[in-house]
Design a protein around this nucleic acid. Structure first.
Length: 295
DNA sequence: CTCCTTCCCTGGGAGC
DNA sequence: TGCTCCCAGGGAAGGA
């Protein structure tokens, strides 16, 4: 599932292929543009130069430069669970059956290569919004919380977010308005690394636990990016490569297996939290912090 | 404001 | 072999 590390990897692989290129053609095979009609979409994107490719939360933002009579636009993609945004060399066929069947939009570039949008589940969406027009930004993007890998995301910042919420930790980590970019995989992995039970009320953490969670989620995200993301089913990066982090998952998708922490005898359990499967080790992540021997 | 539920969509696996 | 059922899950919307 594309979460922050996967979306970041897609952006990094697409950036050198797209920036500086001009879009010469737009083919919309299915009308999955959320906020404008196909004809208007093609007219507004065609002929534009790509000025940048950036990530915000789980969104990919392709910045289209101004052209005569047209102010700059942002072309915004959300991959949801099964979306792919990939670069294909000139004349290349869809690289696998999934893309052959579920490619919904193709952008041709001035070097005759293509940017293809595919989505097996048809959940993903494209938005085209004027660069500086806040009311046109998709609500989920407008309401995003802080980037967890940004320099300004300190343990103190995380503490102030958790302090105000009584909901289970797992739900707060999944809330994109609290912290941007975590999904089911990295929420579970972060909580396991921090030794925190997913049902603990967010506001119940002491300062040491907040610091542990802050360290853990940043470490998990950084390591996943370094591995090119997690491929469980359909995820590939902008050049069609699978991620490698699935081999390093400690609890996610490992229900009934031995906890991955060396020496731990625990067995990974699964519970549902807010309708989401949640994986944890009952020994590493006790319901309440064990009482420490003081002095 | 916070929290909770429902819906969207397809493929793949389990079970019969 | 083929059928049904259920699950995966992020975000939007609506209600309490």
């Amino acid at each position: 599932m594309p979460e922050l590390p996967e979306v970041e990897t897609v952006c990094r692989t697409l950036r050198p292929r797209l920036v500086g290129r001009t879009v010469t053609g737009v083919r919309l095979l299915r009308p999955f543009v959320a906020n404008c009609a196909p004809a208007e979409f093609a007219e507004r994107v065609g002929g534009r130069r790509v000025e940048g490719v950036r990530r915000r939360g789980k969104y990919i933002v392709i910045e289209l430069g101004a052209s005569p009579g047209r102010p700059p636009d942002d072309l915004i993609f959300h991959l949801m669970m099964a979306g792919r945004l990939g670069h294909r060399p000139p004349g290349a066929a869809p690289p696998d059956p999934v893309e052959a069947k579920h490619t919904h939009a193709v952008f041709t570039l001035d070097d005759r290569s293509e940017l293809a949008w595919a989505d097996l589940r048809h959940f993903g969406r494209i938005h085209l919004v004027p660069r500086h027009q806040p009311e046109a930004i998709p609500p989920g993007l407008a309401a995003l919380g802080p980037e967890p890998l940004a320099a300004g995301f300190t343990a103190a910042r995380l503490a102030s977010i958790l302090r105000r919420r009584r909901a289970p930790l797992k739900l707060v980590l999944l809330d994109q308005a609290a912290v941007a970019g975590l999904g089911n995989i990295y929420a579970d992995e972060s909580l396991h690394r921090a030794g925190l039970h997913p049902l603990r009320p967010a506001c119940s953490l002491d300062p040491g636990e907040v610091r542990a969670l802050h360290r853990s989620l940043r470490a998990a995200l950084r390591e996943a990016i370094a591995s090119g993301g997690t491929t469980l089913r359909t995820y590939v990066d902008g050049e069609g490569r699978r991620g490698a982090f699935q081999a390093r998952l400690r609890v996610y998708g490992r229900t009934g297996k031995r906890c991955a922490r060396p020496g731990c005898e625990g067995t990974v359990e699964r519970v549902r939290v807010g309708g989401r499967s949640t994986h944890f080790c009952p020994l590493c992540q006790p319901p309440r912090t064990a009482v420490r021997n003081s002095r």
